[in-house]
């Protein structure tokens, strides 16, 4: 019985990774048609991707919007998380609920509402508008990860720094920041990933001049299915895996840091 369950689990795990395993050989195919087995191997579709102006521009937009979102969301999210940790006022629950709303509302509702509202103030068809929108959906995750990190922080360290004459800003940067850094990094990476992978809002807020990588892929799928799309997908998978590795690194490093702090 247990063996049957194990085999079933292995099949489910294969199902989970299969699309990724299939898309790799397809992107390296030398054929024009997306089918397996491939007639031969080549890098022509990656060449197509990296020499095509549309794809390059889309990648550039994605990186710019992703980085800008990461910076803004991380700064605002970290400040808010620390503020939530420090304060205890009536209505704090309401504030927390408002801050977490963008995680709960279906993206399509967010996207369509933002489209209508942003068009009034001229923020549609603009990368600035997209950064604002992505910051709004990414910052709540930063708040969560940083809040989790701050809660393990020992406030006596902060008080010690203050009693030794550091001003609050310096105490925060030199004492608190290094300790909660893993949480901030995890939040920042998540913010970048959220923006980099985001499609639905991009559909509503961007025109062809501002297409991001997911938006360009979506357009490509609808126009003509070429193996270049598989290559683009592999490029995006590459980004995701790098980001996953960074968070894993930050997590293990954070645990080590905590152990060291506990040991001393």
């Amino acid at each position: 019985m247990m063996r049957a369950v194990r085999i079933f689990a292995v099949l489910v795990l294969i199902f989970l990774v299969s699309p990724i395993l299939v898309i790799f050989p397809l992107s390296f195919s030398s054929g024009e048609v997306l089918t397996l087995p491939t007639p031969g191997w080549s890098l022509r579709w990656f060449q197509d991707f990296f020499l095509n102006e549309r794809w390059l521009l889309a990648t550039k937009h994605s990186v710019i919007v992703g980085l800008a979102t990461m910076v803004v969301a991380t700064v605002l999210g970290t400040l808010a998380a620390f503020g939530l940790y420090l304060s205890d006022f009536r209505g704090k629950k309401v504030v927390m609920a408002v801050l977490s709303l963008p995680m709960v509302v279906p993206v399509i509702v967010t996207a369509s509402s933002m489209y209508v509202a942003f068009s009034v103030v001229g923020l549609t068809n603009s990368l600035t508008g997209l950064v604002i929108a992505h910051t709004i959906i990414a910052a709540p995750y930063v708040v969560i990860t940083v809040l989790a990190a701050v809660q393990t922080f020992d406030m006596t360290l902060m008080r010690a720094a203050l009693s030794l004459g550091a001003n609050p800003v310096r105490a925060f940067i030199e004492v608190v920041m290094p300790m909660i850094m893993p949480g901030i990094v995890a939040g920042a990476v998540f913010a970048f990933a959220t923006s980099f992978d985001e499609l639905v809002i991009a559909i509503f807020l961007t025109g062809p001049e501002q297409f991001t990588l997911p938006r360009q892929m979506f357009a490509g799928l609808r126009e003509m299915l070429s193996p270049t799309i598989a290559a683009a997908a592999v490029v995006m998978i590459g980004f995701s895996v790098v980001l996953l590795l960074i968070t894993e690194y930050a997590r293990t490093r954070g645990e080590r840091l905590k152990q060291r702090a506990a040991g001393e």
Partner: peptide, 29 residues
């Protein structure tokens, strides 16, 4: 408390952004 005031000032930027860029558009929908 003083801490709460400082805390609220830290929360304010994100709160304002979400109220203006998210809550307002959804309410108008």
């Amino acid at each position: 408390t003083r801490n709460s005031k400082a805390g609220l000032a830290l929360i304010a930027p994100l709160l304002v952004l979400i109220l203006a860029g998210f809550v307002l558009p959804i309410a108008s929908t």
